[in-house]
């Protein structure tokens, strides 16, 4: 017995090994990508952020200088933060409110739900393309359609919304809100998860419409709202194309549409300050991480989870 036990154990080990090999075989593209495209570059950009590095020179160690400069003496960083936070703090809540309101309207059992759902979703699907940015530039231009409509309806001669530094950011916020469709679809899916008998029970208990909304719909929807808010916030911090196209890549007029990512792009690929741009990138990562962490911390107090 002992004698023929040995080869068996070998067989045993081989079948186990095959399992692991198969696992790593199937995972290998991702693994390679993880090391070469994510982990390696992340480590390297962390290092670069502590150097002075341009196209022509080798990286020169400067310690925390880049971060110091960002924090203390970079007016364009401050402008970019200003623009980005305005954009995030206005576009995300507006988008959420719009998406939720329309989802609730649609959930009323309107005929043609699928049609409306599709119509509202379309802008989300194409909203990131250059064509839409081009269109937006036209809509809000001095002689654009918005002003034409205002002229026709109210005889009001509007300014060029794009060229005016005090309004240009709002055209981009409008563009973001225009793309509320995907959030709306997630809300619709969430609304359908709420069991119908809960409303029936509530109306038997004498709860009216608004009470049902605030006591049933809204609390049960908080996980979806939370999820949408986090995703939208992260996406809003990363917005790039519309600002780039609308301002011809400058972030103008007078840095009024200088999104953080646009500033990062300019530093990296126009000024070729790779070290400084890397530092900017990690500051953005930190901001997004902080925002996400805060959201998750706050979730305890307002998000309702089933036990």
């Amino acid at each position: 017995m002992l004698v023929d036990d040995v080869p068996h154990r070998r067989v045993h080990r081989w079948t186990h090994l095959r399992q692991h090999l198969a696992g790593y075989g199937f995972l290998s593209p991702w693994l390679l990508g993880f090391f070469v495209l994510t982990l390696g570059p992340a480590a390297s950009s962390l290092y670069l952020s502590l150097t002075d590095y341009g196209l022509m020179s080798a990286p020169r160690w400067v310690g925390a200088d880049n971060y110091m400069q960002i924090a203390t003496s970079d007016p364009r960083f401050r402008a970019a933060m200003n623009v980005t936070f305005t954009y995030v703090l206005l576009s995300v809540p507006l988008k959420l409110v719009f998406a939720l309101a329309v989802a609730i309207l649609l959930n009323r059992g309107l005929r043609g739900l699928n049609w409306f759902r599709a119509i509202f979703y379309l802008p989300s699907l194409i909203g990131g393309s250059v064509a839409i940015a081009v269109l937006w530039r036209q809509v809000f231009a001095g002689d654009g359609i918005l002003n034409q409509v205002l002229m026709a309806l109210f005889s009001y001669e509007g300014p060029s919304w794009i060229a005016n530094p005090s309004t240009s950011i709002y055209t981009l916020i409008a563009l973001a809100v225009w793309q509320f469709g995907s959030s709306m679809i997630i809300f619709l899916a969430g609304l359908r998860q709420i069991p119908q008998d809960m409303y029936e029970a509530a109306s038997i208990d004498g709860a009216g419409r608004s009470r049902q909304f605030f006591k049933i719909t809204l609390p049960l929807l908080t996980p979806v709202i939370f999820f949408n808010a986090v995703i939208l916030t992260i996406d809003a911090f990363k917005a790039f194309t519309p600002a780039f196209v609308i301002s011809d890549g400058t972030g103008g007029p007078i840095d009024s549409t200088l999104f953080y990512t646009l500033y990062l792009y300019q530093e990296a690929f126009t000024n070729f300050r790779f070290g400084y741009a890397s530092a900017l990138a990690w500051v953005l990562v930190a901001i997004i991480a902080a925002f996400t962490a805060l959201s998750f911390l706050s979730a305890k107090y307002w998000v309702h989870y089933d036990d």
Partner: peptide, 30 residues
């Protein structure tokens, strides 16, 4: 598939979903 380290890699994979591409952009470009 059952293999050693599966849950470790899975957690890392979820982590990469969170990591903004900007953090790796410049070294990738270089």
């Amino acid at each position: 598939l059952q293999f050693k380290g599966r849950s470790f890699w899975f957690a890392l994979m979820l982590g990469t979903m969170m990591l903004p591409q900007h953090a790796v952009l410049i070294p990738q470009y270089l």
